[in-house]
Amino acid sequence: MKVGIVVFPGSNCDRDAFYAASITDGLEAEFLWHGDRAIPSDIECVVLPGGFSYGDYLRSGAIARFSRIMPEVARFAERGKPVLGICNGFQILTEAGLLPGALLRNAQQRFICRRVFVRVESTSTPFTSVLAHGQLLSLPIAHGEGRYYASPDVLEELEANGQVVFRYTDPNGAVTLEANPNGSANNIAGISNRAGNVVGLMPHPERACQALLGSEDGCGIFRSLVHYFENVGV
């Protein structure tokens, strides 16, 4: 199963994502260029990686979403194919309107680079299918603009439809104010679209796929993809 990782000017987690997919049994990785006008037909999943596309000019993700490949990514998502946005990729997905809400400057007005705990809130996405509901993952975050915001009615909808995929918690899995690293609404760390095939999250699972890097908790996101293709198909 081939995963296409889009490289934008200023992406800096593209190689990490490539590596994480490559070491997952059943997955192969391939780079896609932001200026491409088509997604090769053998690509089964698209990843928008972390970084600072276009220097975060204007707003994070605001320029990248006008890249030539983005209308293709939107069509790919419309067809129900899995799309994952990590960190800057999540910001690009919200700017593109493929996911609701927006990511604002962290409430503490600081860039945060540390490990956090997130709780799996939905296992019905292609990226969480082998994880358990309520499972805790230890993943790194590294962002200045990760405060998830959506209007109260959109938040209510996300919660009601089970579109909240990951939530920041303390080491015991409790959703607390202290465990919220950036002031995100409802401690939201990641969401999906209504159909569940488009997922965005601020933490970096691709940076937590080897014991040497301090955590293997990110592997489950990539293994889920393999499981999804084998059992659900597209």
Partner: peptide, 8 residues
């Protein structure tokens, strides 16, 4: 379309 994000 670009200069502002109407969501926020």
């Amino acid at each position: 379309q670009l200069l502002a994000n109407p969501v926020v």
